[in-house]
Simulated scan of single mutants.
Amino acid sequence: MLIDKVCPGCAGELVADVPAWCASCEWGLGRFDARRAPRVWGLRAADRVDHWLAFRLNRRQYDELAGRAVDERAPAGRRAGLLLVALPLALLGPACVAGGVVLTMLAGWLGVGLALVALGVALLWPHRQADPWGEWPLTPAEAPAFFALIRRVADAAGTPGPDAVALSHDVSAHMTLRGRRSLVVGLPLWGALDGPERVVLLAHEMGHFVNHDGRRHVVVRAAYHTVQTLYGGVAGSARRLVFAPLFLAVGVPLWGLFAGLLVLGGRDSQRAEDLADQVATRVGGTAAAARLLDALVTLDGLYPAMGARHLNHADPADWRTAAGQLRASTDVGLARLRSVRVDASLLVSHPPAGLRGRMVRSRPQHPPALVVDDAEWAAIDAELAPWFARLRARVRELHP
């Protein structure tokens, strides 16, 4: 089918995606891309609703927060609503176990009781996503300059520092807050960034230690686990048995429940990400924060770019070279808008990178509060050199 190349909204030229959209007035940007969108819900209609709803919620939240400071906590009503929905779901697993025991011991309903106990155990059983490649724990004795930088960033951000630090082979960074504060930094991403962008990256992760993300609450986590287990089991059974009525009768209501929980929790999670970006901007400066967020929409091809150019995976400078070439060859404006479209899903906890960069630029400009000199960066690169050598070996295992 031929596509009219003129935007009906502003008469500008359309971007040659399918469905097409306009980079000038953003007409058509929120339309669902059935060819590229992954099947995440097991039912294409649910994927369409998910995208439609998430795209509009993302834009609404951006309109609410753009140009102003983000509060450390979500509004009390939203937090209460999230907990109110999550609590009965979190208690479903223990209730099934207790009910099964009571039915078995007191009423003698052995079959029903055991079935309830089995369901309760399945709902309580943890989902472990094993990483066969693992992470590399790092200690202050192994990288004193790196840990000193982390402490300085935490002090500048006004947050606690991590209790544990690890390195990985991912083009990402993240923190966890289960039992102790842990920071994981992906070496490819670290190598791809310049000094000020690295400061912003660390400050963003420190911001997660104080941003009160509602989805980290133990009750909310348990509720997510329960609904994911139920929905995944029903959807999987329906696909294996080719029994669509089961999915329609049970899976669709479960999808609605899960989607409602994601709407409530996801808005708070995205607010928490915006607050972490705000902390990072205050520490590393607006210019570096905007550059980092722009980099995130270009670095998906970082590993292929390294391989195509036969660069040295053990050399941080080569990662920066590949990243620089990706940035130079990418129309960042279009990439930002594509991220707004592609990352529209209730299952995505972060705002689209394109909206994050726009959000940073909408607020008062900040100079960097923390500046690191070249000598310190050289010392940190020297300390991390053995782990970059491990990264090169891992890349050979992953991509022989």
Rank of each mutant, 00 (worst) to 15 (best):
H208N: 08
L193V: 08
V200W: 00
H225C: 06
A288N: 02
L262E: 12
G266E: 04
Y224I: 06
R271N: 11
L187W: 00
L187Y: 00
V252E: 05
F243M: 11
T229N: 08
V263A: 13
L248I: 14
A272L: 05
T226R: 02
R215A: 15
F209Y: 14
G266K: 03
G186W: 00
V242Q: 11
F209D: 07
A235P: 00
A249W: 07
L202S: 03
V219W: 07
S182Y: 08
L248F: 13
T281Y: 09
A280H: 02
G260M: 10
A259G: 09
H217Y: 06
G265A: 15
A259V: 06
E197V: 11
D274V: 11
L248S: 08
V283Q: 01
L254P: 03
Y224G: 12
H225Y: 02
A259T: 05
R267G: 13
L261S: 04
V250W: 06
L187F: 01
G285T: 03
F247A: 08
Y231Q: 09
L230Q: 01
R221Y: 03
P188W: 01
V242D: 13
A222K: 02
V242I: 10
H208P: 08
G232L: 12
V199R: 00
G284L: 06
P188G: 06
L262M: 15
F243C: 13
A203G: 09
G191D: 05
V252W: 15
A249D: 02
H217I: 06
Q228I: 12
S269W: 01
D194I: 05
L183N: 04
R239E: 14
R240T: 12
G214M: 14
G236W: 07
L248K: 04
G284W: 00
N211A: 15
R267L: 15
D194F: 08
G186S: 06
T226W: 02
G256F: 15
A287G: 04
E205G: 00
T281V: 12
G285D: 02
A259H: 04
V184E: 05
H217R: 12
P245V: 09
D268Y: 07
P196H: 07
G285Y: 01
P196K: 07
E205I: 01
L230A: 06
Q228S: 13
V250N: 05
L230I: 02
V199L: 12
V219M: 08
L202P: 01
P253V: 10
L248T: 10
R180W: 14
R216H: 14
H217N: 14
G186V: 02
P196M: 09
F247M: 10
G256H: 11
R180L: 15
A203H: 05
G191C: 06
V184F: 08
L183C: 09
G236E: 02
T229F: 02
L193M: 13
L261V: 10
G233I: 10
